[in-house]
Design a protein around this nucleic acid. Sequence first.
RNA 1: GCGAGCGUAGCCAAGUGGUUAAGGCAGUGGAUUGUGGUUCCACCAUUCGAGGGUUCGAGUCCCUUCGUUCGCCCCA
Length: 438
Amino acid sequence: METLQSLTGTEDILPKPQWVGQDVKVADISTWQRVEAAAREIFHRAAYREIRTPIFEQTALFERGIGEATDVVGKEMYTFKDRSDRSLTLRPEGTAGVVRAFIQQSLYAQGGVQRLWYTGPMFRYERPQKGRQRQFHQVGVEVLGSRDPRADVEVLALATDLLQTLGLRNLTFYLNSVGNPEDRARYREALVAYLTPYKDQLDPDSQDRLSRNPLRILDSKDEKTQAIAEDAPSILDYLGDDSRRHFDSVQQQLTDLGIAFELNPRLVRGLDYYTHTAFEIQSSDLGAQATVCGGGRYDGLVKELGGPDTPAVGWAIGLERLTLLLETLHPATAPKVDLYVVSRGEKAESNGLLLAQKLRGAGFAVELDLSAAAFGKQFKRADRSGAAACLILGDAEAENGTVQLKWLQSGEQSELAQADLLADVEGLRERLRAARGE
RNA sequence: GCGAGCGUAGCCAAGUGGUUAAGGCAGUGGAUUGUGGUUCCACCAUUCGAGGGUUCGAGUCCCUUCGUUCGCCCCA
């Protein structure tokens, strides 16, 4: 028998089962909802507005935006031909699409600064491991149209606010400046000059990178390579005056805001579009894929993609990594319902449905037992639903227009007219709060 | 793309070539056909991810494949 399975590197996110023992192995939705709610709130407070862009775009957008030489474009994209033979790609990151929309929809024509945030699935064809999926999710922000170092700092503060609000610990915030393209070219030359004599002692990957992408050698995990990189020239010594001033200002203001960071001149980001500020927030609790949040400034990208010369800065947080950290911090709980409706007998059953609808209309969370099982069975389920109280309808109640209201914790039960119950929803709300100990 | 490990029920698992695949949790039915959380009883894998091979005999050994875990590369 061949059963259909989800593809490698994709996962289902399920609601938490109602009680322990009903364990499932997959991710839990409540953690995701908590992250999304916190992000919305924090973005709203800083005047960022949500943008949604398509999940697939023309392949050329990513090739030009992210850089043909990067690993993401070179070997990780989900690229395919559609029925009219166009080359499409499932987005591997969020920035390129946002910038494309910014240009295509002429958002620059609105003047001033665009503060945007987004969330959604991204796709990269890689081997899955801890904190890495082929379909993964990011939440990110982009500020377009400001060169001011305060924009860098605002965006950084947003990231730390969000992570802090969620209660994350053991995070380190690494900061660097990769300067402007001219600074970087001068530095690259100096770095190659320093490394070339050691070429034979570098690990094979790094030897390869010496000509292609020497900056990446700096954060190699190979011990010998690291020892050599230890004494390599620092990019911070190659920043021009403007870059220097910008970076100094960012650092000063981060300090003023009380945001702790660690300068890491060897931090290099994998996408070509970064300029000036580059940063990563890493967790020591994640294994090899430690980066929770990554981003920086990308002053050249908008122009590169055919828009007006527009400076920009942003970041993205990996939600799988974030929820991984949160799940160990606060275990998920099953959502509980307020009331559980138990009924038996044809008339009582439709009466129960009607009553449930009315109570839902009044704002209560109500679960209706759909079985025609014995009351005993239905009570068992009422208990497990986590409801504070259940409403019981049998032939007698349906006949008289009454209902039994039973509090599951105390066992206290009383009969009242359905009309009275509905007339005093505030009273019921109050008793529910009390029953939950609120 | 490369390396290593692992797949026995919804979950946790015992089993290590000899015939009937332990046990626990969860689930279903009953004791209890208008009152739950406890308890007791019964049921719950013709089959060990899938396919092929070796063998008198395979959950156990081999191959392929799919899934999964951790790492490399790279990144969120």
